[in-house]
């Protein structure tokens, strides 16, 4: 018969682990957990910020020539965008006038809550899910969109706890978004991450004509995510006459590694 010593540390620690799991399941550890998370939050935020800054400075070692080429490309892009922005402002002003004449309500009603990223939960094959310092107590729920300061969608909330939540990045395979192309036919599809680096737009009918560089936005077909949040732009189109659907590779517009502060979109 197997004899177990009275003060066997293996037995003691195993019992302790089971005890902790049981206490957590019945909710008795919740106050301690909340306290621990709140107490360590300032330190985690500071260290995460430091780590992100270190990573940014590490990535910014470019050759002079590469930098010069990049600056020239960006200058051209700025000029193009300035012209496009000017046209958009004109169109928006006309739109507002027409809406007021027809007494139509504005289509965009959402609030945002600012949150700080405190950690990254790394998973196999993904860039890492973001853990933020807002949770159920701040009104968060699964499915809400997360955007950066420019309004570009980063991902969406997957799970919430009382004072924290986890969000998947749009480049993660599990992060699916109902999307639309900003073209004349407003082509619909579903995006999901690809190897943690790019985004793939799937279920695009073969009859739809796509162009490289076209912008992809959220289509508004999901309950919790409003229409019009920018996802990325088309960098490749994959069309095969044998396939039922065509797919497009979407290049994100931001660097997800430099994020420290995000906003959560709460639709009204």
């Amino acid at each position: 018969m197997l004899k177990i010593k009275k003060n066997n540390p293996l037995v003691i620690f195993s019992t302790l682990i089971v005890f902790l799991i049981v206490l957590h399941s019945i909710g008795l550890l919740a106050p301690l957990e909340d306290f621990l998370l709140s107490a360590t939050k300032p330190l985690t935020v500071r260290l995460y910020d430091w780590g992100t800054n270190f990573r940014s400075s590490y990535q910014q070692r470019y050759d002079r020539q590469v930098l010069q080429t990049k600056v020239q490309q960006l200058e051209k892009l700025v000029n193009t965008l300035t012209v496009a922005n000017s046209r958009c402002l004109e169109i928006n002003a006309s739109n507002q006038k027409l809406r007021s004449i027809l007494k139509l309500k504005s289509t965009h009603h959402f609030q945002t809550i600012t949150a700080t990223i405190i950690a990254k939960q790394l998973r196999l094959g993904n860039r890492g899910d973001l853990i933020i310092d807002r949770g159920r107590q701040s009104g968060l729920r699964p499915g809400l969109a997360i955007i950066n300061s420019q309004g570009i969608i980063i991902g969406k909330i997957m799970e919430v706890k009382n004072t924290s939540a986890i969000a998947c990045l749009s480049t993660n395979i599990n992060c699916k978004l109902a999307a639309a192309v900003q073209n004349q036919t407003l082509t619909q599809g579903v995006t999901s991450g690809n190897l943690g680096l790019t985004i793939q737009m799937n279920f695009i009918p073969q009859s739809e004509k796509l162009k490289l560089g076209e912008m992809i936005i959220t289509s508004g077909l999901e309950n919790e995510i409003p229409r019009g949040l920018l996802i990325g732009k088309i960098s490749q189109i994959h069309q095969s006459s044998n396939a039922v659907w065509q797919t497009a590779t979407i290049q994100p517009l931001i660097n997800f590694d430099n994020l420290t502060i995000v906003s959560i979109v709460i639709p009204q």
Partner: peptide
Amino acid sequence: ILLVVISQFSILAVLP
């Protein structure tokens, strides 16, 4: 131990 754990997921997790 808490400091080690926090360093693990707050600093190290964001590096290349």
